[in-house]
Design a protein around this nucleic acid. Structure first.
Length: 610
DNA sequence: CTAGGGTTAG
């Protein structure tokens, strides 16, 4: 949408005060109406006052206009439709009135675009130019709608109108550009603004967190701390940054920082506690998550949701379901996200009948319309339970189109069974059509289907397709935190300062494994490795094994080894890690791209179902 | 009258 400032604005009518009202002393009358307005607390009363105003005042009297802006202000936060009708009645709304309505729409849940539309109307009308209050509202709407084109025009116009150094506006701009993924522009606004406040820093830090640039967010936080006292908003962003990084010590430090009352009221703030629960879950410490959760002075739906999802992601399906029942017992109504947690818990443990039960409960008892995510869980539950036909039936009964994730669930299940080549091809085609080809997994699955049907020509074809389309597997990478320092590894990495010791540990592991008769599982080894020896070698030095080896070198008694990796665990590493946990009598917690595995005494919390 | 997350499945 083009938003142009009107070059020929109509002349602003100069209103003369008209005191010769036939209603007597209009001044007192206005005061009386205002008094009523101040006491007004429901929309029906407001309507009465509105009617009286209409009946008993002169439309062009400035005092009347003031009353109208008060009515508008009240109406816009209670009944938007009504506010619009009041607004339309005003012959020549002033800047304040435009702002009030633009703000109301920008804040509304479902029609933010009308905020932008209204701004356009304001420009077309041209009697009043937008002021410095207009832009924060407008930019909020643009940010939410990721309306980059409109927001940029607003940016140009606010510069033209001379608001380039206004702090509020610049903060809004940072948030807007960040919402549109224009991190560099956001940063530029931040750098160039004449005076930065806590909010500016918060907006910038949060921008980096939202776009997964956690390290930069932390860096900025360190700079900010020397200048301003962090507040609740800062801490929430920082705690989520720790969650994203999987940085346990840093997360624990933030927690301590909050508890030391460095931030007023943070330790009792529900949102802060929710993000702490989430952070501890994502950093692999269910114990700490549970502790924070148990000590919370009050909980909302999100608190329960975080805990349920935490249990689920750690493979503790029973605990997740128990938590769900507690939540119901506590009188908190579950929402759509709650059921994502509940269903994914069922999925992680292959609970087919429970999965169905909760899916039905969500619809019948809680009247929640299943969303794509819920269908995704149930489809996966059915598909992995070898009920492929039922999964397909469910997909065709869905009111929305299946996405890449759902097709992948189905394709995955097909590959595991005696593959139906045609069905698999169809699914792969769907995934590629939906643009899911960038991830090499589809090709890998498909070539496995062809291989199992001994269609070697097709296997070659898929491989050629992969190289032609430039599909490459994202390199596997794992990391471990030791005394607060992150150590990162790629497969076969020799760059670590303790590389020599690490590889000696791997040799020891290799020998011990061989002595107990372990045979490597090459099924998921990269296809490019033609020579078996190289395959064997490449499995042995998968990044997570290097990280585990370093963990063993720095083992603290009674403490688990926590590993993080960017991809999913391969079959062989999963098997090997189970054995390592037994041989060395150590608990190993691995955060995969999707979820956690707790290895202990030779078995894993996922019960080999992941 | 002004700024400050949209969590979530695979």
């Amino acid at each position: 949408m083009i938003l142009a400032i009107n070059p020929n604005p109509p002349p602003r009518v100069l209103r003369t005060r008209n005191n010769s009202s036939s209603y007597g002393d209009s001044f007192n009358h206005h005061d009386l109406l205002l008094l009523h307005l101040n006491e007004c607390n429901e929309i029906s009363k407001l309507k009465e006052i509105h009617a009286q105003t209409l009946r008993s005042t002169l439309p062009n009297d400035p005092n009347t206009l003031f009353i109208y802006s008060r009515i508008l202000h009240f109406a816009s936060s209670n009944d938007l439709d009504y506010a619009c009708r009041v607004f339309d009645e005003i012959e020549n709304p002033n800047c304040f009135m435009w702002n009030t309505l633009i703000r109301a729409f920008a804040k509304s849940s479902d029609c933010k675009e009308r905020g932008i539309l209204l701004y356009k109307k304001m420009l077309v009308q041209g009697t009043f130019l937008p002021d410095k209050y207009t832009f924060p509202f407008l930019l909020k709407a643009c940010a939410y709608l990721t309306a980059l084109f409109e927001g940029k025009q607003a940016h140009a116009q606010l510069l033209k109108l001379g608001f380039g150094s206004d702090a509020y506006i610049n903060n809004s701009l940072i948030h807007f550009y960040a919402s549109c993924d224009c991190l560099a522009v956001a940063r530029n606004v931040f750098e160039k603004m004449p005076e930065r406040s806590v909010v500016s820093w918060n907006a910038m830090i949060d921008a980096f967190v939202q776009l997964d640039e956690f390290e930069t967010a932390m860096q900025l936080f360190r700079e900010m701390k020397n200048l301003f006292k962090p507040d609740n908003y800062t801490m929430q962003s920082i705690v989520s940054a720790c969650a994203g990084l999987g940085a346990f010590s840093l997360g624990a430090w933030s927690h301590a920082y909050i508890l030391r009352k460095c931030v007023p009221d943070a330790s009792t703030n529900v949102q802060i506690n929710n993000s702490l629960v989430d952070m501890y879950c994502k950093c692999g410490s269910l114990e700490m998550a549970k502790q924070v959760f148990d000590r919370m002075p009050s909980r909302d739906v999100n608190s329960w949701n975080s805990m349920i999802l935490g249990f689920s992601n750690h493979g503790k399906a029973e605990a997740a379901l128990e938590c769900f029942e507690c939540m119901r017992g506590a009188g908190t109504t579950p929402n759509s996200v709650t059921f994502v947690g509940v269903l994914s818990a069922c999925d992680h443990k292959g609970m087919v009948s429970k999965g169905r039960k909760y899916f039905d409960m969500m619809i019948t008892e809680y009247k929640i319309e299943p969303r794509l995510e819920h269908y995704g869980c149930l489809v996966d539950i059915l598909a992995r339970g070898s009920l492929i036909n039922e999964a397909l039936d469910l997909v065709s009964s869905m009111p929305m189109k299946p996405d890449v994730v759902i097709w992948r669930s189905l394709l995955d299940a097909c590959c595991k069974k005696n593959a139906d080549v045609e069905l698999s091809e169809e699914m792969a085609r769907q995934i590629l059509e939906l643009g899911g080809g960038a991830y090499g997994g589809v090709y890998v699955l498909l070539s496995r289907v062809y291989a199992s049907a001994s269609r070697w020509d097709d296997v070659g074809l898929v491989r050629k397709l992969m190289t032609d389309n430039g599909v490459s597997k994202e390199p596997g990478c794992s990391w471990i935190e030791i005394d607060g320092t992150k150590h990162e590894f790629f497969a076969g990495d020799t760059s670590h300062s303790q590389a020599g010791e690490i590889y000696r540990v791997l040799d020891v592991i290799g020998d011990r494994l061989e002595s107990i008769g372990y045979a490597p599982d090459y099924s998921q080894a990269p296809m490019v490795d033609e020579v078996n020896d190289r395959k064997k070698q490449s499995l042995r030095v998968h990044s997570e094994r290097l990280a585990i080896a370093l963990g063993l070198l720095h083992l603290k008694p009674g403490m688990p080894i926590r590993i993080f990796k960017n991809l999913r665990v391969c079959n062989d590493c999963h098997q090997v890690t189970k054995l390592i946990s037994k041989i060395f009598n150590v608990e190993i917690i691995v955060r995969d791209r999707i979820r956690f595995h707790h290895f202990k005494d030779g078995s894993c919390s996922c019960m080999d179902y992941w």
